[in-house]
Amino acid sequence: MGIIDNINKLFDHRVRLGIMSVLAVNEAADFNRLKELLNVTDGNLASHLKALEKAEYISVEKTFIGRKPHTNYKATKIGKLEFKKHIEALEKLIN
């Protein structure tokens, strides 16, 4: 097995990498907070969140604050583990 095996294709995009970075150090983040941090459009962020959710790297929690829908995102155990492996692989590659 080469180190390249641990490079995760799913993290091959700047926005997805950003989402995982934020969720790795925060318990949870909502849609607007991610949007503000990553500086991307609604549609762009939503599609990347979908991809990570499909892989079960993040979990989604929908609630209502008053009448407004509020969506919270968290990194799952698998997500955190895969992200850690990805970072370690990146580090090895540049060394």
Partner: peptide, 24 residues
């Protein structure tokens, strides 16, 4: 390329820092 990997790591670090400054 190597340069892209480096940029990725920089991006990860930046996001982690900006989203949770208090720890640093």
């Amino acid at each position: 390329t190597n340069d892209n990997y480096l940029k990725d790591i920089g991006h990860i670090k930046d996001m982690m820092n900006r989203s949770s400054r208090f720890i640093s």
